[in-house]
Structures are given as structure tokens and as C-alpha cells.
Design a protein around this nucleic acid. Structure first.
Lengths: 239, 239
DNA sequence: AAAAAAGTGTATCAAAGTGTCACAAGCGCC
DNA sequence: GGCGCTTGTGACACTTTGATACACTTTTTT
């Protein structure tokens, strides 16, 4: 009974990040997006990542060396993306230890297939992960079924969550008791930047509150921080 | 709209302190300087510091152990300064958890660049660890639920607090029986500097008094110190 | 002691930020 | 295609906050 795999996308292009994130989420993966090496390392620290999709061409520390350093410390599965179809790149990539390789432009469906394949392969032989896998998340009076993306009540009543609601909830559960700005939440849930006057997070918060709060008018779980964002005000336990 | 970051410089050399302070202020950071561990701890208590620049070679308690103790209790970003370019020092520094590292002599411009980089990183995604989970605070006839950001009466009546009111109350509860100037309160509650003729703190005090004082006209908890600021005139107990 | 200056309390107002409803575009699914 | 569900946008009401104004208090000056 595995929880939903958690994919980390590392790419400096905002559109690619959000496109892939959206696509993979729709196919019920959990997704975190990072715009470079620094963000990648932080995400690996903060979350239990199962697979990394890594763009090779990035400003700053480039993808190949990131992949190499990743491989130096763990056996995290990696799928490389590149703009060039150079055979040499392919060779280098696989030599470095990438599990698979895709050249842009590619069909998201193809990436999905590769991800499935790599995960199946990597899960067949047990690997040691950076963090123990969490099986069940619970907070307040709720339990989260991350596979079915639904909430379970004390009384075993099931409340389904939409893709966006689930992503938002996971962002909060990954960072409880911390003020998350709307920008951060957008990045965590969709890997995209805010438009001007972006109110989508406010709306999702409103929708999520209706599902998890006893009285949505006076929320006790998702607190508003005026001028700052939102905070998840409850303990989260993994069991 | 982020407030200006507040940098704390810890160095025993007066010239270095004032030089760096001047330079960073010119680049519109807010700067506090400390000549050693004691002053550093006081500054961390009294102000909302965003990043510490810490000299490793200091008489008394040395920089490395200061850095270690800093890390033990918080995840404050730290940049270390050292006179020696020893590789071992670098390794030790980063192992201890410093975010970056600079060897003297260095160009102030370079320090500036590192500060920017570290702040960007530390603000991009909040870190995993956080202060120890809050206990219950109580004073006078009130109990504070810091998680829910609300006040609870003797008779279990709940009084909600706005974001700013809660921040102000926490500033007082962290420094009971001490005179806090309006500038300090602004820094502690919002991490910003006062505009000219800034009366926002006075306003918030007025609003907070209406909620916590029995008779707001003759306050017993938040006392005015004429020409000095305000004082919280009650014991605070954590349970 | 009176007058002036400096500092404070708070009502009032405007601006900024937030909650949420209605609606439409998009998508998946027959 | 048509239906239902999801999600972002725009709109509007409401809340929170800081600025301003003025009355009042405390201190300083004369």
C-alpha cells in the first residue's frame, strides 16, 4: 500500500514546470517544482521525493552536475530532460547514472510513461530513501488518504478532495505552523508564478476550509495572516 | 512587499563592524552590530534579525560555538567570516550549519552578494524546523492560545485577535516588564522601520488595550512610559 | 504659574487586503 | 456533442490597518 509517489521537477522555465506539474498531478502524482539546484536540494530535504525530473540545460549549476551530486549521495531515480538530441548527451547522461532520458520537445504522456516505468523498476528492488515513507497523515479530526486523495472523518465519513484542494492541503501538511505566502503556495501547489491580482489561492483556501473546518467562518486550522498569507495551525502526525 | 531585512554583524573589531554596517546600510539593509556573544544574544532577543554575519575569531566564546548554539535553537541564516583560508575551517563552518562562508580580507561587495543569495534562499521556501512548539502563555486573567491566536478568559470566553494585535501582544509577552520603544515594537511586530510621525503602534496599543484591559482608560497591563514607549506590567507564565 | 512644546489616546477615514459568490472556460467522460 | 465537475476570474462586501486630526496629558520654558 504505497502512498502517491512524489515527483520533483527541476527546470528553470516557469511554463514547463507548471505544465508538467499540472499534467502529473492530474494523473495523481504529488508534485513539487524547483527552479534550480538550490531549490532542488531544499525540496529533497523537506519532502520525501520519489523521483526527480531534471532539466540538463540550466543557468548556474547545470543539470548534469546536479545529477552527479545527487547520485553521489543517494540512489534517487532521475529522468533527464534536454533540448538537444545529441547522442553524446544521451551517453553522458546515462553514464552519470540517470535512469532515463527524454529530449525536448516531448509529449507529456511520454514522460508519464517513463516515470511509471522508472518507478516500477526502482520500487521492485528496495532502495534506501532519504526519509521513511509516510503512510498515513492525520491532523485534527481528519485522516488523509493520500492515495485516494480523500479525507476520513473520526466517524469514517469520507470527504473527497479535488486535485487542487489536495495539493493545497499537502502543501500545508508539509509545512505546518509556518506562514506560507500566496506565492509560495502557488509554487508548492502548481509550480507557477502569480499573475497580478491572482486570487486563485484565496479561492482554494476558501473551498478547502469549507471541507475541513467545523465553522468555515471562524477557521481554526487554516489561519489567515493578514498581509502575509496563511498558516496551518495544527499538529500533523505521520503514522 | 517585504520589509527591509535586518542584518546582525558580530565582530570584535570596531572598525570592521562600523565599516560593514555603513556599507550595508548604504544598500538599504537595516543593521545592528554586536561586539561579542553577549551582545549578539541580546540583539537577537530585542530585534527581529533576519541574518547574522559572524566572525569566527573572537576572544571569549568563539564564533564557531556561537554559531553552533545559534543553530541549536533556531534556523537563523548565518554567514561566517574568518581570517584564515583554511579548507578545514570551511568544512567545519558548513558542517556546523553556516549558510555561507567568507575569508578575510574580502570585498564588502562580495559579502553583499552572499547576503542577498542567502536571504533569497532562506525566504524562498521556509525551512522545516521551527521554534519549539509553543506552550500556553498566561498573564493576569488571560490565557493565550498562540496556535489559534486568541485570548481565553477566566470564564473560557474567547476573544479573537487580529494578526497585528497578536504580534504586538507576543512582543510584549516576550519582554515583560521592559520598556519597549515604538521602534522596537515596530521591528518586533513587523520587521520594519518607522516612518516619520508613525503612530501605528499607538493605534495598535489602543486597540489591544480595548481587548485585554478591564478599563482601557486606566490601563494596568500595557503601561505608557512617557517619552519612552510602552511596558507590559504583568508576569507571564508558560505552562 | 502660565504658556508653549512635546507626547499620547483614540475617533474617523481611506486604502489595502481578504472571503466568497456567480460565472465562464476548460476538461474528462460517457 | 452534451453533461458534470473543477478551477480561475471578476465583482462586491467586509475586515484590518495605517494616516490624520484633534483633544488631552505631561513636560519644559518663560
Amino acid at each position: 500500500m504505497e502512498p502517491t509517489p512524489h515527483i520533483l521537477i527541476v527546470d528553470d522555465h516557469e511554463e514547463i514546470r507548471s505544465l508538467l506539474a499540472k499534467y502529473l498531478r492530474k494523473h495523481s502524482y504529488r508534485v513539487t517544482a524547483a527552479d534550480g539546484g538550490t531549490a532542488m536540494k531544499r525540496a529533497l530535504q523537506d519532502s520525501a521525493i520519489d523521483l526527480v525530473v531534471l532539466d540538463i540545460m540550466m543557468p548556474g549549476e547545470d543539470g548534469l552536475s546536479l545529477c552527479r551530486s545527487l547520485r553521489a549521495t543517494s540512489d534517487m531515480p532521475v529522468i533527464l530532460l534536454t533540448a538537444m538530441a545529441e547522442e553524446t548527451d544521451r551517453v553522458i547522461g546515462l553514464e552519470i547514472g540517470a535512469d532515463d532520458y527524454l529530449t525536448k520537445p516531448f509529449n507529456p504522456r511520454e514522460l508519464l510513461a517513463r516515470i511509471k516505468a522508472v518507478l516500477r523498476r526502482s520500487q521492485s528492488l528496495p532502495r534506501q530513501r532519504e526519509k521513511p515513507v509516510e503512510s498515513r497523515l492525520s491532523f485534527d479530526r481528519w485522516q488523509v488518504n493520500t492515495e485516494q486523495r480523500e479525507l476520513i472523518d473520526n466517524a469514517d465519513v469520507i470527504t473527497p478532495l479535488s486535485t487542487a484542494e489536495f495539493a493545497l492541503l499537502m502543501a500545508f501538511l508539509d509545512h505546518p505552523r509556518r506562514v506560507l505566502s500566496r506565492e509560495q503556495l502557488l509554487d508548492l501547489t502548481q509550480g507557477r508564478e502569480a499573475k497580478s491580482f491572482d486570487r486563485s489561492i484565496d479561492n482554494q483556501v476558501s473551498r478547502l476550509r469549507k471541507k475541513i473546518e467545523i465553522d468555515p467562518k471562524t477557521p481554526r486550522l487554516i489561519k489567515t495572516v493578514w498581509g502575509g498569507g496563511y498558516t496551518f495551525a495544527s499538529d500533523v502526525t505521520r503514522s
